[in-house]
Nucleic acid binder design. Sequence first.
DNA 1: AAATTCTCCTGAAGGC
DNA 2: TGCCTTCAGGAGAATT
Length: 270
Amino acid sequence: MPELPEVETTRRGIAPHINNQTIEKMVVRQHAMRWPIPKNLPAKVSKHKINSVDRRGKYLLLRLDSGTIILHLGMSGSLRICSPDTPVDKHDHVDFVLNGKILRLRDPRRFGAVLWTTRDPEKHKLIAPLGPEPLSGAFNADYLFEHTRKRTASIKSVIMNSHIVVGVGNIYACESLYIAGINPKRKAGSLSLARCEKLVAAIKQVLDASIKQGGTTLRDFIREDGQPGYFAQQLFVYGKAGEPCPRCGRPIKQFTQQQRSTFYCTRCQK
DNA sequence: AAATTCTCCTGAAGGC
DNA sequence: TGCCTTCAGGAGAATT
């Protein structure tokens, strides 16, 4: 399930293959994604050059001179660099055919999206309301402290809210809270500035470490070259219900929060 | 305004 | 072997 490290891993993987390449044509086999892929998109992107590949939160931005393709991998999406004779899987929904290579989107659950804008992507309705990048200086203890005051929602749901900070999904939220020693159920507004500092540091540490490992592969995620990411081997609590806490040995507990599985240690996280 | 619930979708896993 | 149920979840939309 692609979170920020997986999207960044993908961005770094595909960039050298597609930067400065011209899209010969775009093939759409399945339009029904999170939102329908615009019928006229192939015509808009064909014969245009990809100038750069950027990331904003979990969105990938393919910048052409004629506009920007906005890609989201949802929770089962992946992008691969293929050759013209690579067999097409039934969930391979979109091809961007380049000179001798194909950028291919696979997304079994179709929660992803392929959109288009001719304006500044930062002004797009999906991008504009997003909070700061977690690895940027704008996301710091003061920011988190200020934005959690008077919040009665759990700290976990707040750090997973993309309008507060982007890119922190379920896996990394659980891991960050464990590292910071904070109970996922704690009301966000009850965190001290010092604990905001710890949590911000933990989020940056976890995301950074995962990017270095090529992301986390649990089920669907693969890199652009078909390889998995290796951060799953470094997870402390996610998916570890019943296993001993690495710090105190108590069994890791699992419960449902905002319709998501949360994993934590009842002793180490207060 | 903020918090919560609903929704899209398919594959994996478990029960019988 | 096969059919059914349950679970997984990103995040906008709808609802409270």
